[in-house]
Every structure is written in structure tokens, then in C-alpha cells.
Design a protein around this nucleic acid. Structure first.
Lengths: 144, 144
DNA sequence: GGATTATCGTTGCAGATGCAACGAAGTCAA
DNA sequence: TTGACTTCGTTGCATCTGCAACGATAATCC
């Protein structure tokens, strides 16, 4: 009637695609590793940083509200995967690090995540299309 | 350290991109038209259908939980944008239709949405890349 | 026809989320 | 040093969300 089809509308497509993928991932992370996606983001960033990291830094780096980071970190600490210390130089800051258990968990998750990604991209189309997809996706993140 | 970078991880990229785009859209819809994204989805589908539609159908067609559809429809009815009637054949079903005010609102929103989409895709890369992007995105939605 | 089973839309509830406000700590200027 | 201002992380609060349960209606089977 109006000539408008939600299925061809980019924000809708993006939201649906992200929701489906996130759901699949969240289910797997929960069943297999007992963590949520926000927790996974914190773990991943802690692992990549390799050094103590503040809540603020994760918040800025990983697209999560600082309260979300704070709560995820609290859960991870309770689970013994992350250690919270005080930054000696600036006592407002928290110094988050992976515990050995946390590092071990990340080591278990990473290959699973990479496999999942590889298998997924293989199903999505030609290598060229997937490369273009990722280029544009990165652009969306920059520009939006 | 682990060689794992969240920024290159597809589910993360998708989630971030969708969140940013949705946020921008939600702000604009709220300020300019006074509706939320779930409400917009219901309106758009009602407009495309052109005939009375059940909650069940929107739920199946538009990737929303049926409770979400139900609540969005209730708000839209309160706002006078949607009419709820009983399906005469199957009295379990609700028959949702746009009121004239609802149709008028959709007519105002659609050009804005299409403009937004056009402007956005123009900024995202070459026409070829964008086409590939949308191909792959559609594939993600099918497969995931 | 009557009983069982399935489907529809709504609602209660528990959990997650974003925002704002707060106390604690730091910075800076006079 | 003191006082105003900023930044950090946590928490209270209102809202949104998904799931399960429910009453109402319909379909199916005997």
C-alpha cells in the first residue's frame, strides 16, 4: 500500500540479525561456560589488555554502560574469574584483572568463538561478499 | 595475548552496529513522532498488510514476542492509532487495523525512514559493498 | 455430543537495562 | 590549605523484556 516493506529496511534487518546471532551466542555461552554476553565482553577485554583495567576503560572500549560493566565485574568477581583491586596511583579507579581461573576460561572460550565465527562466515556467502559485509559493518560502527 | 580481539568478532560487531543504529532511530521516532520501535514495527506491518491482522501474525512476521506485540498494540490503541476488533470467524483472534490517524502517521514516517536509509547507505561505502552487505545480512537472518 | 488437546492474546513475574544521583577521590586555582 | 569543580564506580529506580501461566475459544478424536 505505502510501498514500504519492513523487511527491506536496514535498521530493522540489522536489529533482527543481531538479535538472532546474540541469542544463539548467549545460549551457548550460558550452557557451556556459565557466563552472559556482558560478562564475556569484560573477560575478552581483560584478556586482550593483559594488564589491570578500570571500569571506565571497559565502558569506553566495549560499548557498555558503566553500570553494566560494574555489575558484570561484580558477578565475575563472585565467580572467582576476575580480581578487583584498588589502583595505587588513583584510588578512585578499580584495577580489574583475570584470575588464573578466568584466564583458563577465556582460553577455553576463544577457540569455540573463533570456530563459530569461521563456520558462520562460511555459510554467509562468497569470501568477497563477507569481506564487503565486514567493511560496511565497521563503517556503520564508526559513523553511527 | 590470546590473539583474540573483540573488535573483529562478528557477533560483537553486529550487536554494536545494531545498538547504535537502533538508538539513533529510537531517539528520532520518539522526539518526532512519539512512538517506540516496537510500536513502529506494528504500525509498519499493519500498513503493509492493508487488512486486519492478528497479534499472532505480527509476532511471526516481525520478530517480536507476542507479549511485546500485545503491549505495543495496547499503547497504540490508547493513542488512537490502531483499532482492535474481534475476528468474527475465530473469536480468539484480535483484528488490528490502522485508524485514519494511524495511517496518517505512517504516511508521515515512511518518507523520513526512507530518507534516513538512503542517506545512511550512501555513507557506508560503494554501491557494490552496500549491496553485498545487504545480501549477507539477509543471509544471517535466514540462517541464524 | 463430550472430552481432550491446541491455539490465541493478556498478564504476572523475575531479571536486565539505562539513567541519574550519590559518596569517595582527585585536580586546580587562589 | 581551602573550596569549587571534575571523575570514578556503585546503587536506586523506573522501564522494558522474555517466559510461563492463565482464561477463553477452537479443533480433534472417540
Amino acid at each position: 500500500m505505502t510501498g514500504f516493506d519492513l523487511d527491506d529496511f536496514l535498521p530493522y534487518q540489522l536489529a533482527v540479525a543481531a538479535a538472532r546471532v546474540s541469542r544463539g551466542f548467549a545460549d551457548r555461552y550460558r550452557e557451556e561456560f556459565g557466563i552472559t554476553i556482558p560478562e564475556w565482553r569484560v573477560l575478552a577485554h581483560l584478556s586482550a589488555a593483559g594488564a589491570p583495567v578500570s571500569v571506565r576503560e571497559i565502558h569506553a572500549r566495549v560499548d557498555m554502560d558503566k553500570s553494566k560493566v560494574s555489575r558484570a565485574a561484580a558477578r565475575l568477581e563472585r565467580a572467582g574469574l576476575v580480581a578487583k583491586a584498588e589502583n595505587a596511583v588513583d584510588r578512585r579507579l578499580v584495577a580489574l584483572t583475570l584470575t588464573p581461573a578466568g584466564a583458563a576460561l577465556v582460553a577455553r572460550i576463544v577457540p569455540v568463538a573463533l570456530d563459530w565465527q569461521a563456520e558462520m562466515t562460511a555459510r554467509l556467502g562468497s569470501a568477497g561478499d563477507v569481506a564487503a559485509f565486514r567493511r560496511v559493518l565497521a563503517r556503520v560502527i564508526e559513523e553511527a
